[in-house]
Design a protein around this nucleic acid. Structure first.
Lengths: 220, 220
DNA sequence: TCCAATTATGGACGCAGTGTCTATAATTAT
DNA sequence: ATAATTATAGACACTGCGTCCATAATTGGA
């Protein structure tokens, strides 16, 4: 075998699929089948209950083949997730924040659009998002997503509010934001997405910006 | 043996410790030791890595003894958690909300105090809370906590705002609240509780009620 | 087209940890 | 003091993991 499975579970999210670009077709087929089988089975029986053999069976592969590509169940899950996360990150970072006056209406619209992007992308990969947000597999996964969002918020604050924000530590703000967003996202996906992505983004934005005490106000 | 371990993992949280009140002292000692050993070891090595034998070893008990009381690792964890959750629920529900005008200053102070209760209680059982909030063990646990908070919010809304809340479904509001609160709680515990419980409650309340756009305003 | 390289396969292996059972010892409540 | 209950150690079968091997099948490149 040419491809060594990710060694360190901590940065497996980044490591996988590196030298894969020009790889043998069999490799791509095999991994694709494994990823699909995993997601399907997780939604059917849950992650914990799955054996490696269940996955390879569903994927029509020999059990030994699995270990040519992944160290264990978790590595496969991380690989599946990484693809989706990379997708989203590309979309969001392509949507770079313009230099806008903090609190301006334009900034508000931009932020709202960025949040809508997240909801839209989640809708597109609903299965995987549900797996992630449910915390199936290592809980470390959803924690990492949470941390990623926190970091994005902190970067945003750094860029757009170089002055103070006296009554509130940035960490508190970032975690508040990330927790609330992920909770809404989870609820939305688990309940059949009863509203549009833009609607959800608008509701979240209003709650976050105006608070529950000023629900009538629409301005940003 | 006289005591049958919880059968259904779904309602094990409620089932355990029912006929325990007049039980043999050995039973109480044994379970206590098992619970303590579990929590200590989770913080040392993490939940997943623990074998039943590790736990009984730390507790100075025979491995077979474990199965006289719990079906498996998870049942023991659920038992430990249930005790703490019951404690908190008792405290909070004893702190029943008075009939206050929605949006009044008194109502604001009450709500803030109720939230502070949660933070205080978490500080008192920090070890267990960290285990819960990290999602160690079944992720179902933290999901259940989240659901409990949602339900509390919905009940509060039912009681205090029988009229409308037009631009926002109650589910959305409840999940937003629960997600944000748990995120702050988690951050607080994982970072050495750098602020007082009352401070955290105040910050959370301000964010939730006034939003990030009105950070200067202190009134509720 | 054919060849060397790579990957897929099925089966067997040792290993670790689980949950059960038994006979026996220790502790408990009354 | 005694009958009942619980704790214990050890053995047991069982499941699932991760590795290895020889062999078959597929691939990309010359």
């Amino acid at each position: 075998m040419r491809q060594i499975p990710p060694v360190n579970p901590e940065d497996a999210l980044r490591a996988a699929e590196e030298s894969d670009r020009r790889a043998d077709r069999r490799i791509q087929r095999t991994r694709q089948q494994l990823r699909e089988a995993l997601l399907a089975l997780i939604l059917e029986r849950g992650y914990e209950a799955l054996r490696v053999e269940d996955i390879t069976e569903r994927a029509n592969l020999g059990r030994a083949t699995f270990y040519l590509h992944y160290r264990d169940k978790e590595a496969l899950l991380l690989d599946s997730i990484q693809q989706t996360v990379d997708e989203l990150l590309a979309q969001v970072s392509a949507f770079a924040p313009p230099r806008l006056e903090a609190g301006s209406e334009a900034a508000a619209r931009w932020l709202q659009r960025a949040i809508a992007l997240v909801f839209e992308h989640a809708a597109g990969s609903a299965t995987l998002y549900r797996v992630i947000l449910r915390g199936e597999g290592t809980a470390a996964i959803s924690r990492r997503i949470h941390a990623m969002i926190c970091q994005a918020v902190l970067a945003y604050l750094e860029a757009h509010r170089p002055h103070q924000m006296p009554p509130l530590p940035a960490d508190v703000l970032a975690n508040y934001f990330a927790g609330a967003l992920l909770a809404l996202l989870t609820w939305w996906l688990e309940n059949g997405m009863p509203y549009g992505a833009a609607e959800m983004a608008a509701m979240f934005y209003r709650l976050f910006y105006n608070g529950v005490g000023h629900l009538g106000a629409t301005e940003g």
